[in-house]
């Protein structure tokens, strides 16, 4: 019972954590993802950058099966999660996602937010779930907030709780969707520090972000998303110093002018 069994057979070290193949997604007439191919290796941190509306959130939601695909395939740790008959609840257990707007459960304390899924999905005993949750909250400096309700926390604290809530399921892959975009500037750093700590710990992450400086620091690879395609990708030094595609150059130029790089 518990985390170990539900993670399935440990994937071989060479099996990528995530493979996205030819993913298409439209909302009505609007084609948001127009053929995405992307591979994330185990322990790799990949940042998605791109203009607002370029499809970053949609891609992350597709990976977590919150949006059905129109075409393509998503393979997580060797398992095709789009295959017919796949149990989406089981797949989502292994993939954590943290949203821009935190989306904490407002009617539950911090501790209950964190333990809900371990109790109800992994069927951990409440005491066990609480012990694990407290260890995580402790690690991210939130132990004294365990009894608070979300509306009593700052945005930065709420977002850290949301990250802890995702981590409590011990996901093999963590998706972060502009997790600092809704925060006041002085609260951004505490959340980025948490993500850096996770990267040091070897967490595999796919991160949509507007924080270019952060992306440059943390990413093993940066993908520039434009009009539903990955127009260019490479290591951060190359992407930020010498982007090849003209559109990437223009995007980074605009970001720089806005003082975000």
């Amino acid at each position: 019972m518990g985390g170990e069994g539900s993670r399935g057979a440990a994937p071989a070290a060479t099996t990528p954590a995530l493979v996205v193949e030819g993913v298409h997604k439209s909302f009505g007439q609007l084609e948001v993802l127009a053929g995405i191919d992307l591979t994330v290796a185990q322990h790799e941190v990949v940042c998605l950058i791109g203009a607002s509306g370029s499809g970053k959130s949609t891609l992350l939601r597709c990976v977590n099966l919150l949006e059905p695909l129109d075409a393509g395939r998503i393979v997580v740790a060797g398992e095709d999660i789009c295959a017919p008959g796949v149990d989406v609840n089981r797949v989502r257990r292994r993939i954590g996602i943290v949203f821009q707007a935190f989306n904490l459960f407002p009617h539950m304390s911090v501790l209950d937010n964190v333990t809900l899924a371990p109790r109800k999905v992994l069927h951990l005993a409440p005491a066990e779930a609480t012990t694990r949750a407290l260890a995580l909250l402790e690690r991210f400096g939130l132990a004294d907030k365990q009894r608070e309700f979300p509306d009593r926390l700052s945005g930065g604290q709420q977002q850290r709780v949301a990250i802890v809530r995702a981590l409590a399921m011990e996901p093999g892959l963590l998706l972060l969707d502009e997790v600092t975009s809704a925060l006041d500037p002085e609260l951004v750093a505490e959340v980025l520090a948490v993500i850096r700590e996770l990267a040091r710990g070897g967490m595999t992450m796919l991160i949509a972000t507007h924080e270019m400086g952060f992306a440059r620091d943390i990413a093993n690879r940066v993908c520039f998303l434009d009009a539903g395609r990955i127009l260019e990708d490479g290591p951060p030094e190359q992407m930020f110093r010498a982007p090849r595609a003209e559109r990437t150059q223009r995007f980074l130029q605009r970001v720089m002018e806005a003082g975000r790089l």
Binding site: N64, L66, N89, R92, R93, F99, A101, N103, A117
Partner: peptide, 12 residues
């Protein structure tokens, strides 16, 4: 978004 958050944690 509340349902999305719950489902993303693996809740049915």
């Amino acid at each position: 978004s509340q349902e999305a958050a719950a489902r993303s944690l693996g809740l049915s």
